[in-house]
Write a protein that binds this DNA or RNA. Sequence first.
DNA 1: GCCTACGATGGTAACGTTCCCATTTCAGAC
DNA 2: GTCTGAAATGGGAACGTTACCATCGTAGGC
Lengths: 340, 340
Amino acid sequence: MPENAQRATLLEVARDAGVSKTSVSRYFGGERERLSRDMQRRIAASATRLGYRPNQMARGLKGGRSRLIGMLVADIRNPFSIAVMHGMEQACREQGLSLMVCNTDNDPALEREHLALLAGYQVEGLVINAAGRPSRELEALAAQGTPLVLLDRALGDVDADVVGLDNARAIDTALDHLQTQGYGELLYVSEPPAEASSRQARLARFREQLAARGLGGEACCLALDDNAPALRRAIAEFLDAPAGAPRALLCANGNVTLAVTRALQALDVTLGETGLMGIDELDWCNLVAPGITTLAQPTEDIGRTAVDSLLQRRRERERPAPPRHIHYPAELIARGSTRR
Amino acid sequence: MPENAQRATLLEVARDAGVSKTSVSRYFGGERERLSRDMQRRIAASATRLGYRPNQMARGLKGGRSRLIGMLVADIRNPFSIAVMHGMEQACREQGLSLMVCNTDNDPALEREHLALLAGYQVEGLVINAAGRPSRELEALAAQGTPLVLLDRALGDVDADVVGLDNARAIDTALDHLQTQGYGELLYVSEPPAEASSRQARLARFREQLAARGLGGEACCLALDDNAPALRRAIAEFLDAPAGAPRALLCANGNVTLAVTRALQALDVTLGETGLMGIDELDWCNLVAPGITTLAQPTEDIGRTAVDSLLQRRRERERPAPPRHIHYPAELIARGSTRR
DNA sequence: GCCTACGATGGTAACGTTCCCATTTCAGAC
DNA sequence: GTCTGAAATGGGAACGTTACCATCGTAGGC
């Protein structure tokens, strides 16, 4: 192998093998069977000898096939996002696609910026866990023909598939479980829904079902950032108010579960006696005292489905189907925190 | 905005603004000041009106400047990797770079495959948290002139910078703390070091210092995958053996801490009485019973430094400096699990 | 007032592919 | 024996950008 060699090019391989560049292109472009046995052998030999690798940039330029899938995630440090990303990665690999991940840290401006960048790389599809409401850029992307999938959060006016949890059913499952376990006075803790459709859906369903089932309690929304005191106060208030039945807390997502668990420890609450349950399964849920009951999202499935959905859309590009909404059920993992 | 518009091209902007493509290229290529006020205005106007975005593929093809940084990570689900990635992302954004992340799931074959892919995208730099020993591909990449940074794990025969923890000092810090707290009989639990240099370094230092300090105990290495029983047995053995001083466990990384904590709970061990300490700070460390003492790695710094290092190397491409090794100290976060 | 030089601009040739359209060869149909 | 067509191959023109060199003014030095 040469000392400071530039990467070999298709043309060099062609020359070395004594064939035309078209043939080499075909060999690497997935039309291998159209070539004669002998030609395949010669190309393969030259290619390995020269260490040839197709230049994806050139490839992407010519055909518009960048073989790139973009992922825009609102909070990369959220285990949910990571798990979904892992699923997407596997799906991509199976399809020979690569993943470009951008984290927006929940900042709409950054989101727009990254969106423009991803568009610049001609991504063949885009999976978005939106922070803001970047419909302008998204619409441009969609109009340009890029398949879009919204992850977890729908965006009303964008023509895209949505993949995520069946939020209403998840809340029902949670309430069923809590009722079965004898809890009757509930506090639902969520981050402010703002634009996040799944937060809205969960919250709405909780409120609706609370009334429908004749349960006591309420929902409380607050930002988690550095709001530990406020959260503790809200929980203390709930615990001190008179109640006709055992109390339980339901956390809207993993971040909330973490914050609430911290608050409960600070308040010296015994889990189980006061129920605790969260959406999103986390590493440590079976480590904290009697174990925390959760609703696990099928994150890997969600990730794979997102990618599949993208590819499906690309296939039917000519005859665009109406947006699909795919909602997975959550899996109940019952632990000590909801056992009295 | 047009219904099914293809993205506008540089040429179209040029025509629309009545200038040459060179000028438009300059405008977007960071030579804006070389253009007259008037020309800048005209180009800006046309560009926004047409919704122009430079095609990164074409850009990457022509100049070799893909503006892409690759990251190869052995285990994307490891919080350490995520945190570092987050740091890298920020550094990249500040430089106008994008990040392409590939997860190898600790599979050397996958690692090679992804390496080839990243090379195909002409990444301008590569940060690698190696799973196997992919020196062949890496050397090719290095020879081709791509700056390389090894994350956490050095790879003896590869000419690249290394960024990570000061492992020896971290172990010393841990031992200092444990000794101060009165623990004298230690079990160091690690995953098998195999090719991972930092695991080797930590393990070696532990063994060496154990002897040097006249402490009792030993080190034990086992794969964590689904080896809960084996781990439990090893720990039980340690706890049952006669000891002249209070016992403590030291976990080589976050994964180990998780597994060991599980095992200790199964064995009904009281933390603090038996000491527990882990390298890597985790979300839940202050949630489990008296809180778990950890050594936090400065993950964000590590990520940023990795990217900076890459850029530095690219700048000095002509006069290649010898490989740099940058090792950060760990920060001790003392909690109840090492208080007797 | 001429030459130099620099600042502002434009034209053209790459970059490494893929795609479209030849061209060649040869088997089988009439 | 010619014709048709498919299979195997090759030639060139794109794709959208940047790099290099050329061209034009015009301001300053003598």
